[in-house]
Nucleic acid binder design. Sequence first.
DNA 1: CTTATCCTACCAACTAGTAGGATGGCAAAG
DNA 2: CTTTGCCATCCTACTAGTTGGTAGGATAAG
Lengths: 194, 194
Amino acid sequence: MTNSGEITAGKILEAARQLIMRRGYSGFSYADISDAIDIRKASIHHHFPTKTDLAIAVVRQHREMFDTDLLTLQASGADALTQLRAYVGYWERCIADDSAPFCVAGMLGAELPALPDEVAQEVRAYFENFDKWLEEVLASGAKSKQLKLRGTAKSEAKLLVSLIYGAMLAARAYGNAELFKDVANDAIAQLSRP
Amino acid sequence: MTNSGEITAGKILEAARQLIMRRGYSGFSYADISDAIDIRKASIHHHFPTKTDLAIAVVRQHREMFDTDLLTLQASGADALTQLRAYVGYWERCIADDSAPFCVAGMLGAELPALPDEVAQEVRAYFENFDKWLEEVLASGAKSKQLKLRGTAKSEAKLLVSLIYGAMLAARAYGNAELFKDVANDAIAQLSRP
DNA sequence: CTTATCCTACCAACTAGTAGGATGGCAAAG
DNA sequence: CTTTGCCATCCTACTAGTTGGTAGGATAAG
């Protein structure tokens, strides 16, 4: 082995993640990754035989990162508001410094009808996972009276998912990173009791 | 002329709009349009020399439709709530019957960093136009005390844009057309006085 | 005659993916 | 310790198909 495959696979995943966030699934090619990191196209196919495999790996990695960060915080017993702020704060920073201007699952979600079935399935799984966490956090916050919900935890979760992903889209469309921060914080402020 | 160019150009625009809504700018090709309507690829280039030209025309047409429908309703003196409901109701129906499952500008907005500059500019113009209308409607509703805003008309407009486009994305990601209806109506209900 | 429309027949560049060979680490056999 | 063979990694070179776009001709309406 001239180099650890783990490292190379990681670099490929990171490059693919950046490309999907910015250009979408049909907007990037193996040649783009080849240009971004120092590797030949055929070597990418060695690690991820097809584009479908690569996209699935990117989404799965993103979900695992979410799980280790936020499901862990949840398990540690942090209160609902802290958890919500941790999640939103993450995206605020990523969008502000342009290190991750869009959730990879959100981008693929928009492209859903154009994706290979297996990728689409993985994207839906990401949203289910996110939705489940959000619902639990909202329900626990409502139970402890830290949060006031207008509807059920289920409906409020759907509303927040829409708002968060919509704010990402709007921030991009208006070329204004502040927009995400303003909208998301507004939504959280409204959930927390006065 | 074997056929009226106006009609052909219209059919091309409609096919392109459908394709962009479902697959995005980089997800469709001239061949897709050629398959959708009965025309050769080269003939599409006669009406829209480049893909950039075609995308610009699609967005511009969509904005013009918006203007004739909603700026006209506004000019006719309809109250704020009626205008908001007309806008949201339009998308509710389009998403429910799958005739327009996503706003073409929203899809392109997500892809913005991957678009040719001229197309990106047109997309931004669409959002500016939409934003301006929404802000005016909200301000007029607040003035007449028909609507209660939590912040300024400006900030509330940004929040609503996020919510609406996010709800489109979420409806697609969850494969649930009802979601858009629920989220959007919730938002409007909250704006209208009790 | 001019012009708009639409066509067949191209093109160079790019797409995802394959074939097969070079390198080199590592482990078992001697 | 050394040799042998294996296998992961990465490469060059290639493929068949698709991409956006062009050249130039046929048809027909004004």
